[in-house]
Nucleic acid binder design. Structure first.
Lengths: 160, 160
DNA sequence: TATTGTTATACTCTATAACTATA
DNA sequence: TATAGTTATAGAGTATAACAATA
């Protein structure tokens, strides 16, 4: 039996999250979680995750770059990149080679199949992206992009 | 020795992430990660994390609500809320009580100490938030908030 | 049977320290 | 000794299935 008197302390009620909604971080977290979930569904059929897709994108666009450069570009730790590259290499979408001039260095390049998978996934990600911003007009999209870039800069500045 | 000829395939170079930067999801991820990192540093002295802070906020604001309502409000799974409530209860910042009218139901309320910790943390989070949006004018902040809300709605719509 | 809260488990992303092989 | 890449480990958030108690 469902009690719906509205008089008892644990009856159904509207839950207020006004204080949380004041904060941009909380609104960003909610929006990002929803977007991330849709992106995961989008990439899963390709065998890609958010970070393997991101890494593959930059390797395709910058053949010959080094893991340390890739980690910098993605703003992740070198240590966390290793597993991402393992994943991509096991699927034969990228290759790691030793540098001839410095034995410590590796160079990264996408395989033909890697480029094909990336292009297919990229189309799907474009469609995903269009879904996410479907309700925003061009000016709003531009303003959003600028605001996100500015916030990232402010947050990184605060970290120093 | 550092080779800096710029002529070898693995020499230093500018890394292009133009294709990734096209996508809002990637820009959101980068901005959110930077914000999350600052928020973690902000909350750590209080013994709070992003999700325990969020849960505590809503319990303080809605005394007597039930875990299922709280999970709905936070857009997380009931299963994941249990550990969050365990954390808050062990620190004696909230209490879980059994409902008199329905033995399955629990009701949640903050303790006096819980409200004090929340108010102190809330001030720190306000300062964190101000740092994050420091470079945005009021119109940009308003537009950002509206865009994030709209994106969350679009993403949840796409999940159906 | 259905619902509430919970346990258990796995996956993704992140952060840090320490190791290896080269330089 | 310093650097590039890696391994190991832990923390935080999320998703799913299954369970006990209660309705």
């Amino acid at each position: 039996m469902m009690t719906r008197t509205g008089l008892f302390p644990d009856a159904e009620r509207r839950v207020s999250d006004l204080q949380l909604r004041e904060f941009f971080g909380y609104n960003m977290k909610r929006a990002f979680n929803a977007v991330r979930s849709d992106l995961q569904r989008t990439l899963q059929p390709f065998g890609l995750r958010m970070m393997t897709y991101s890494a593959l994108s930059i390797v395709v666009e910058n053949p010959g770059l080094r893991p340390s450069q890739l980690a910098d570009s993605l703003s992740i730790e070198r240590a966390n990149l290793a597993a991402i590259l393992d994943d991509l290499e096991q699927r034969k979408w990228i290759r790691r080679r030793r540098s001839a001039s410095d034995g410590r260095v590796r160079t990264l390049e996408a395989t033909g199949e890697g480029r094909e998978v990336y292009e297919a996934a990229r189309s799907a990600v474009r469609a995903h992206d269009a879904r996410m911003v479907a309700e925003l007009d061009p000016a709003q999209r531009h303003a959003l992009r600028a605001a996100l870039t500015e916030i990232e800069r402010s947050a990184q500045e605060a970290a120093k």
